[in-house]
Design a binder for these strands. Structure first.
Lengths: 231, 231
DNA sequence: GACCCGCTCCGCCCAAAGGTGGACCCGGCG
DNA sequence: CGCCGGGTCCACCTTTGGGCGGAGCGGGTC
């Protein structure tokens, strides 16, 4: 057994997950520290009150996990998250927020957050989540998961796609070829070269496309093709 | 078939979550029944061996939760899921699969799955997941969550968007207006009417767009505008 | 003041796109 | 067989798009 240095919390295990807590509210920090302190396999190695501080501290201390608030003065959590990702920090960041703003969730995950928890998460689940994140698992609050699912399900999106596919369905194979080429921004001349057709033939197909799709110009053909997911 | 008479499992609580198990493998069904049987607050009210059976059984028994395998003879799990959703069934469906095929995950969630678990999920978590789903929470296996996050994060997607935004950034406000109108498939004439401009002015702006964006025709302007997310 | 820049508009010209009508080949079908 | 539809191509025409140069106006800067 190694002797413990007197300055360190005696209860942290040697292989504890090292955590940095970032929140502008001292009460929240204290509360989190108390929750995490209950688990000897977690060690809070630092607290920060804003994003700028967090970036420098995390780069120096190299913690395993960062609990990051979103709303903070000076530099907000998402910006800090981006900075860390850009700097190649291996720390896994759990974003904490009081409200589950849809937009925030997607942005945070795009910026590389490993987790997204609401502040009303029960202490036991928070502790569990930190361990999971440290182990490489992603961890999301249920409402966040639901939002994420909704964002990929998007019934309105599916409808547009379905409508576009329906519109493109009566096209002949050749017309489809031409439609796709049009959607790529090629001229009739270029389309002819790609498909080994005369310009006149391409024009004929494009004319049919206008009629069948009920549109007036090639940009609108491109819109349909893209909506159908063929671009 | 294999509908169970309520007399058999005497242990199910009166307010138990009613579950239907759907899997073509009898061993898997038996195993699931054993796992769920360990919790008196769960009641397996029926087992089905394929999707077609599942649809009729679920509509008749109206269970709270359905554990649905994906790969099954005759009617697969996703098709059954769609049928149930189309029929307005309130049953919450957890899709079970051995492998975490990316494509399957997105399809299942789009079809309205309330959860997506891998078959290697520990029994305790499976039971917990069923209760959560019954309570209205979504429930995903960690690897599935990771896939979902990856599908919204899509670095390649973000890059394209960022590149498009970068390309559009040096445009003047007016040019941006014109670019968006072009992307909607309007003619120069129509753009002029919308923005109270002469056709000549619109042409000037469009010419500037070609130069600044490095493209040769309006379809390609439309592509950029869409990639930037302004469409 | 001179200057640059964004915005507006003009005219001229040519190329490309789009509209119309017709032609031929070929393969499937009644 | 004749008929039809997809695919290929043509000619002719009008409209639109796109290239080029020029110009005036307002606001901001040096």
């Amino acid at each position: 057994m190694a002797e413990l240095t007197p300055t360190e919390p005696a209860r942290a295990a040697a292989d504890a997950v090292r955590v940095v807590v970032v929140d502008d509210d001292a009460l929240v920090r204290a509360s989190l520290r108390m929750i995490l302190g209950g688990d000897p396999r977690l060690e809070v190695v630092a607290e920060c009150a804003d994003g700028a501080e967090a970036v420098t501290v995390v780069q120096r201390l190299r913690p395993d996990v960062v609990l990051m608030d979103v709303r903070m003065p000076r530099v907000d959590g998402l910006t800090a998250l981006r900075s860390l990702a850009a700097a190649g920090s291996p720390a896994r960041v759990i974003v904490l927020t009081t409200f589950d703003a849809d937009e925030l969730v997607l942005r945070a995950l795009r910026e590389g957050a490993a987790g997204f928890l609401l502040k009303d998460t029960p202490p036991a689940q928070l502790v569990d989540g930190i361990h999971r994140v440290a182990a490489g698992e992603p961890i999301l609050s249920p409402t966040v998961t639901a939002q994420l699912i909704a964002s990929v399900a998007k019934p309105e999106d599916a409808e547009r796609r379905a409508a576009a596919l329906r519109a493109l369905e009566p096209l002949t194979p050749r017309e489809r070829d031409v439609a796709i080429a049009v959607a790529e921004g090629l001229s009739n001349q270029e389309i002819g070269e790609r498909l080994y057709l005369g310009v006149a033939t391409v024009k004929t197909h494009v004319a049919h496309l206008f009629a069948k799709l009920g549109v007036a110009n090639r940009v609108q053909i491109a819109r349909l093709v893209h909506d159908a997911g063929l671009g």
